[in-house]
Design a protein around this nucleic acid. Sequence first.
DNA 1: AAGGCGGGCAACCGCGAGGTA
DNA 2: ATACCTCGCGGTTGCCCGCCT
Length: 274
Amino acid sequence: MGRPPCCDKGGVKKGPWTPEEDLMLVSYIQEHGPGNWRAVPSNTGLMRCSKSCRLRWTNYLRPGIKRGSFTEQEEKLIIHLQALLGNRWAAIASYLPERTDNDIKNYWNTHLKKKLTKAQDGTERSSNHHRSMIKGQWERRLQTDIHTAKQALRDALSFDEEKPLPNEDLHPILFKPNHALPSSSTNNVVYASSTENISRLLQGWMRSKPDKTRACSDSGSSQGSVLCESVSSGEEGKPLSWLETWLFEESTGQDQEMTLDGLQLPLDYPTEFL
DNA sequence: AAGGCGGGCAACCGCGAGGTA
DNA sequence: ATACCTCGCGGTTGCCCGCCT
């Protein structure tokens, strides 16, 4: 028996979300919290399917999302994690609490993949040089990159520290009924700023909810941050994975010399470096 | 100025996993 | 045990915008 598509019913709106819809969704989540997405459309009056609501919340409205271009550290961290984890964007996103899996996926597909392809072309042209690269050189190179990745992680972790919200009026667009809102995503800047305002509005609300699990999942993937998960696991005596361990070592001030010994690289790790 | 083209990104689709009755 | 429901994930699509000719 085939399963009907979730949004098979008629009258379900598709396409870009309007600020009004965003506001409806945010208001509902402020009151009930994220989850039970099935009930969201009927309870809010939104003509959207539950998946669309969840996606909108996860990717754009949830607090703590950083928009805009990726930093070099984030870029390197993504490249490393992609090499280690493959296209498991949710897992990768859990190490970049301010980025969504969709964002990372898009960034990978539009920027990093090309960048790496280009780099690989250069690599192939100078393959003789790379083939002769001895393991020690590669280790040093990896260590440098690992250090950069760890730095990025520390930066990401500092996100958890209380950051005072600017004193500016946070929601000039949302709560000015006659404000000229863009009819489409044409004016992305204006629209994004209204979305950002919603998120920032919600930050206070999220902080008032001390629930650890939610705090983690809301700052990472929807399944919860691997990092948060492992930290709490570690506290409870369960071992951290090696990746989580080395990512965390330096961030907790226990930096140690790192070598490839004991590291299990993924099968698809660039062999020219080995 | 206008049309074509490609890049970037938001949103959708389909599948699988986990939970539950 | 199993059928159904809900959710999350990854791949893909389609729209919009800026650049180029």
